[in-house]
Amino acid sequence: MNISMKTPKTLLTKTSGFLNDYSHSLNPYTGCAFGCSYCYVRRLPVSLFRKEEWGTWVDIKAAGKEQLKKELLRAKKKGPVRIFMSSSTDPYQGTEAKEQVTRTLLEAMTEEPPDFLFVQTRSPLSERDEDLFRKLGSSVLVSMTIETDREDIRRAFAPSSPPIAARLKALRQLKSAGIPVQAAVAPLLPFTSEFPEKLKQAADLVTLDDFFLGDGAGGKRSASLGVLQVLEGLGEEDWFNPERLVQEKARFEHVFGRRNVRISQDGFAPFRL
């Protein structure tokens, strides 16, 4: 893993498109050590212009609390500040345990709170910041990606990502601490019939997304990443089908209730429990 330090000119980036429900995105890192094979960021400029394989490099953004507080103050003068963290990386990279960039930025936000903060991660390390999430109260939602409950599927698509059991445990802990949380089954990967019930024990809200709604290209980007070939190798090619999300939605609604099952872009929009 190639890890380097960068000094950003700004931390907050104005959003558009899929994240148009937010005013800004916030990425504490560039690159991602998890290197999930289906990740749409592999086809974005941040990855394509880099002469290194996605998943082998991470740039740490050396920015302090005061810088973010100043940017938040400026942004607030122009209107409500709703932040999506993060749009092109996981805010809880392995190096975060040492560097604490994300924690520092969260500390800044507890002192100069945004109107809403959405934290998207797949890392159990997020449990560490329970104290800061609690300070943000109902203005934060921690969304944990748990795309399957089958370890063989996780290893096939994202072998460097955290184990499923660890993610479920962290989500349960945050929920029990009163932190607003959701489980993000994104993308929808093959799972067992017990999966919805397992998620219900860890979260009251679930978001579903697939390779067709979520990749920004109607499934073409995911196909170019070899998703179908991996599924065929597992004998699960029928999951690469836009109708599958409709079928599985009913299963999750039976467990969570219709109001608590969100789909694709709507599932990543601001939401207060």
Rank of each mutant, 00 (worst) to 15 (best):
P113H: 07
P114M: 10
D115W: 06
F116P: 09
F116S: 04
L117R: 00
T121I: 06
P124L: 07
D131N: 12
F133Q: 02
L136S: 10
S138P: 05
V142W: 01
I146G: 12
E147K: 03
E151W: 06
D152N: 01
R154E: 00
R155S: 10
F157E: 02
S160I: 00
S161E: 10
P162H: 09
P163G: 10
A165Q: 14
A165N: 12
A165E: 15
A166R: 15
K169A: 14
A170E: 03
A170N: 12
L174Q: 11
S176V: 03
G178V: 11
I179D: 06
P180S: 13
P180H: 11
Q182S: 15
A184Q: 14
L188K: 05
L189W: 00
L189I: 00
S193A: 15
S193H: 12
E197M: 07
L199V: 14
A202R: 02
A202H: 03
D204E: 15
L205E: 08
V206Y: 00
F211Q: 10
F211Y: 13
F212W: 12
D215A: 06
G216V: 05
G216P: 04
A217F: 05
A217L: 07
G218A: 02
G218Q: 01
G218E: 00
G219P: 07
K220T: 05
R221W: 10
R221H: 07
R221G: 13
S224A: 11
S224H: 10
V227L: 08
V227M: 09
Q229D: 15
E232T: 11
E232S: 14
E232P: 08
E236W: 05
W239C: 12
P242A: 03
E243I: 04
R244F: 09
Q247S: 13
Q247I: 12
Q247G: 11
Q247M: 10
E248M: 13
E248Q: 14
K249F: 11
A250Y: 08
F252A: 04
E253F: 04
H254F: 06
H254N: 13
V255M: 08
V255H: 08
F256G: 06
F256C: 07
F256P: 04
